[in-house]
Design a protein around this nucleic acid. Structure first.
Lengths: 158, 158
DNA sequence: GACGATATACTCGGATACCCCTTGTCCGAGTCTAGCTGG
DNA sequence: CCAGCTAGACTCGGACAAGGGGTATCCGAGTATATCGTC
């Protein structure tokens, strides 16, 4: 899986704690010492998916496009990593004896079905978890994190 | 995910239907018109994992090392694709403010935990499905497949 | 002093190289078989 | 005719290239701001 998924999730959580004005990719990258341009690329993907809204120019940056409880982890994974399943059925039954070139083995092949069921379980788990849930969990575990994050970004120079 | 996983599962199912003598990688590859040497590589991985047993020389080949109901899809996925999770936590919290270099964020980071939970759901689904289950499902759906497969391999020349 | 045009600096956005892992291939080690040779 | 040896062929096994996608970077399009000039 794409490494940017991790960056994207953490960045969305941080965006929850510093609301109001847009946050630039540069500042978000500085928080975790990440390569700025590459994180920018991931945030662009989130913006294309409608998860973030982006504004250009000075005082520009990224901010959440909708409420945190309406952003699931699956949304982020799909935005960054693409909509394809981990297991991709290449329909090798088509090349085997008795294979029908017109049949859609992604539907009928039982091997494909078993793997697809696992993929669905994975996605169901991700879809059940929102950014708001994560934020709430962190605030419950270490309540000072939101305030610390806000002050850190406030004291950030450049 | 590695494409060889699909080949490996289908090959294991076929091995269930042609028991007794070992089956060469060449014959298994011919069934689906796959590159022989590369399928051999995947079968080697299954042998290293203890799923298949391999014998060299003429009359050699691969056969199941244990009963089909003791081989889960997760075993095959791990053997081919490696034991790593899809989401790998790089512990970016370590680089952030207040990050403790000694802490194991793979355990404590809540983002990592949420992703790990999804991974576990995925693996649980795969672990609950054995080769024997797949074989039984196929035999229920199309009962003539085992016999057809046997005769196909029997009539295969080289 | 106030308003407007302009130059500037800063942001996102997409197009462009680099690199590692998956894919694919090849030749060597080991082994069973079949044939040959000698008794 | 039978036992033993030897040569051969066939298999797995791991080491060796080639391609594609993730990783990383750079420069251009667009915009809010601050400055300067004019009224």
């Amino acid at each position: 899986m794409n490494e940017g998924v991790e960056w994207a999730i953490h960045s969305c959580v941080n965006l929850c704690w510093v609301p109001g004005e847009p946050m630039t990719a540069k500042r978000l990258a500085a928080f975790y010492d990440l390569p700025t341009a590459y994180l920018n690329k991931q945030l662009q993907a989130l913006a294309r998916a409608g998860i973030l809204s982006s504004t250009s120019g000075p005082k520009g940056g990224f901010q959440l496009a909708r409420r945190p409880d309406k952003i699931t982890l699956l949304d982020i994974v799909i935005a960054i990593d693409g909509p394809d399943d981990a297991f991709r059925c290449t329909a090798i039954l088509k090349a085997g004896p008795g294979g029908d070139p017109r049949e859609d083995y992604r539907k009928t092949c039982l091997v494909s079905g078993a793997m697809r069921r696992a993929d669905l379980a994975y996605r169901r788990e991700l879809a059940a978890r929102t950014i708001a849930d994560l934020v709430a969990d962190v605030e419950r575990t270490s309540p000072r994190t939101p305030e610390n994050t806000r002050t850190w970004f406030a004291n950030l120079k450049s």
